[in-house]
Amino acid sequence: MEYLIIIISAIFVNNIVLAQFLGVCPFLGVSSKLTTATGMSGAVCFVITLATVVTYLINKFFLVPLGLTFLQTIAFILVIASLVQIVEIVLKKISPSLYQALGIFLPLITTNCAVLGVALNVVTKEFTFGDSAHMLNLGEATVYALATSLGYGLAMILFAGLREQLAMRDVPKSFKGLPIAFITVGIMAMAFLGFSGIV
């Protein structure tokens, strides 16, 4: 039951882009075409889940026992940067076709604040389940990371679809480009606000 609450809350209620404002720059940057949006979503899913598991373990078995939790920010960003680098090298070797598909997006992910945001959220924030609240364990953290990144993908793919249509419409000159994109995201966020009563 707790896993279900985590999944629904992470995908719909607390959508990472539309409710938590994490990873907005790449969200706007790559969402002008549906194919690139799908590719980026895949890469983000992969990196967020992996990075959260690794940083969770590092925090639990290294930073907390040594009393070094104030180094979380520095440690996590280094772990994420090197992880992205390793993923890139491994992927190139094992699955060149997947590397071809995700390749250009991987370096961009280091500076995607969604990755660091989710990793920090998991180790610093308590999550509420109905009446009780507790820190996530490893299994829950993994599910949370995966669900959050699926929510990122969902928002990005929906938005890319809207934006492809928007490109063909006659928009007033001052609204062209980013302003109309922001207003569209605003309306999308309003639609997602409707989920807020579920959990």
């Binding site: 409710a19 001052s174 980013l178 302003p179 207003i183 995201v185 605003g186 606000l193």
Partner: peptide, 19 residues
């Protein structure tokens, strides 16, 4: 104050700024 307002306000301010 909630999420949608952030996107809408930034969008419209950007229009104003462009103008």
């Amino acid at each position: 104050v909630m999420a949608p307002g952030a996107f809408l306000v930034l969008g419209y301010l950007m229009v104003l700024f462009n103008k």
